[in-house]
């Protein structure tokens, strides 16, 4: 008796879920129909974000949401994949099935995009890549708007070479997520810039772009080489640098003096640490891509020619520049 009662509840629950699923489906259908009737003024855009792993990402998401607002004539279908590649590909597939007008992707990793991009192209949906790149053929996407990660690495490396290139310097690297474009390119750019100097890369491990990752990897480095054995930290993003600061302070050393820190991103917390002298140099990685992406989407959907590769200008800050810039920063 009791069992039957429970199963009735379960069935009722399942039915209710099915009903809500139906109703939300029909909502989507009707709004699509309304769009069609209104002459297609509203552009439906599916945006597959990586997740919200860092302050940079949050600022990027905000910028995209503002640019793709309904006031600007867009309907944004937003998906954050929590740094899970499979989930992100699934999200893009669901955008294709929903029949959005354009898809914007911030790919988590470079590889593995060929099939799903081909599906989008078969369905006639233009794809615009934001922030990171993919290794798939360039015919499969309309445009890429992002940052020159390699140039960021070069800028950071040139500063390091100028400051420390003449003295014996032991450097450790906190890498980004293994296999991601920013991690690969920032490493390549930096390495090429410090070539021939007296800076030696003694170790390099991934901190996954998170604070916790940066902190625990830095703790490992400190135990391995000692505080005196490390002169310079190159972190592929600010969050890992902030984690490293915690680790260095916990080991009784002074970040920014005993161990110098170079980082990339320039999010608010990072800039604050730079002003406080705990980080020595930050190369910006501008997250405010929304307006450029929105312009490209509008162009592509209206059949205009859009520049295939668009770089956003990056700045670089030392302590003095950061003090000046911090009050006006949007993120």
């Amino acid at each position: 008796m009791k069992k039957r009662f429970l199963s009735t509840i379960a069935i009722a629950g399942a039915a209710a879920m099915a009903l809500t699923a139906c109703s939300s489906d029909s909502d989507a259908g009707s709004s699509d129909a309304a769009d069609g009737g209104g002459g297609g003024d509203v552009i439906t855009v599916g945006f597959a974000q990586t997740g919200s792993e860092s302050g940079w990402r949050s600022a990027n998401t905000e910028s995209m949401k503002t640019a793709f607002s309904s006031e600007n004539g867009f309907e944004l279908v937003f998906n954050a994949a929590d740094n899970d590649t499979a989930a992100q590909i699934a999200a893009v597939r669901s955008f294709i099935n929903q029949g959005v007008d354009a898809i914007v992707i911030a790919p988590i990793v470079e590889d593995g995009w060929d099939d799903v991009l081909q599906e989008a192209s078969d369905a006639g949906i233009p794809v615009i890549l934001e922030d990171r790149t993919v290794s798939a053929s360039e015919d499969l996407y309309a445009a890429w708007i992002g940052l020159d990660f390699e140039q960021e690495g070069v800028t950071a490396g040139e500063w390091a070479a100028a400051e420390f290139g003449d003295t014996e310097t032991n450097m450790v690297v906190l890498e980004g997520t293994t296999g991601s474009a920013p991690a690969n390119d920032r490493a390549t750019g930096f390495d090429s810039a410090i070539e021939g100097t007296m800076i030696t890369k003694i170790d390099s491990q991934t901190g996954d772009f998170t604070r916790d990752g940066g902190k625990s990897v830095m703790e490992g480095f400190i135990q391995n080489y000692g505080v005196d054995g490390i002169d310079l930290v190159y972190a592929h993003n600010d969050d890992m640098a902030l984690g490293a600061i915690e680790a260095i302070e916990a080991a009784g050393a002074v970040p920014g003096e005993d161990i110098k820190i170079i980082s990339i991103d320039a999010v608010h917390d990072g800039m604050q640490a730079l002003v406080d002298g705990k980080i020595n140099y930050i190369v910006e990685c501008n997250p405010l891509l929304g307006d450029l992406v929105a312009a490209a989407v509008t162009g592509v959907v209206n059949g205009e020619d859009v520049e295939a590769v668009q770089y956003v200008e990056d700045l670089a800050f030392d302590q003095a520049a950061a003090e000046e810039a911090l009050p006006d920063r949007k993120y």
Binding site: N83, D212, E246
Partner: peptide, 14 residues
């Protein structure tokens, strides 16, 4: 403990 270690609430990585 996790949040205290990094002085931050990182809902995605915690």
């Amino acid at each position: 403990l996790y949040a205290s270690n990094i002085r931050a609430a990182d809902a995605n990585a915690a």
